[in-house]
Amino acid sequence: MLETSMFSEIGLNHYLVLSALLFTIGMAGILLRRNLIVVLMSIELMLNAVNISFVAFSKYNMNSEGQVMVFFVMTIAAAEAAVGLAIIVSIFKRFKEVNIRFFEHLKG
């Protein structure tokens, strides 16, 4: 299935590449951005990259299980976002700070 030509039609590979790109962008976002909210968004981006990958595989494997998984992932991503935001909010309330560089007291 990977032999499908890249340019003739939109195939699995395109989705996978897209997913990989999104995953990488998400990762890069985490690595590079200083703002915790943006980092949180980057995490969501990574999870969404996973979702794309699941859906694409689901479609090309003719297996709907993948799509079910996406629901799970989305749900949990939401929970995760909630938890993450909760932590960030509590931090912001106390320290008025969402810069990631602020959190470097634990080290060594």
């Binding site: 997913s19 999870l47 996973v50 992932v73």
Partner: peptide, 10 residues
């Protein structure tokens, strides 16, 4: 982890 799972699934 999930990304890996998606590939295993695929």
């Amino acid at each position: 982890f999930l990304y890996g799972v998606s590939f295993i699934f695929g």
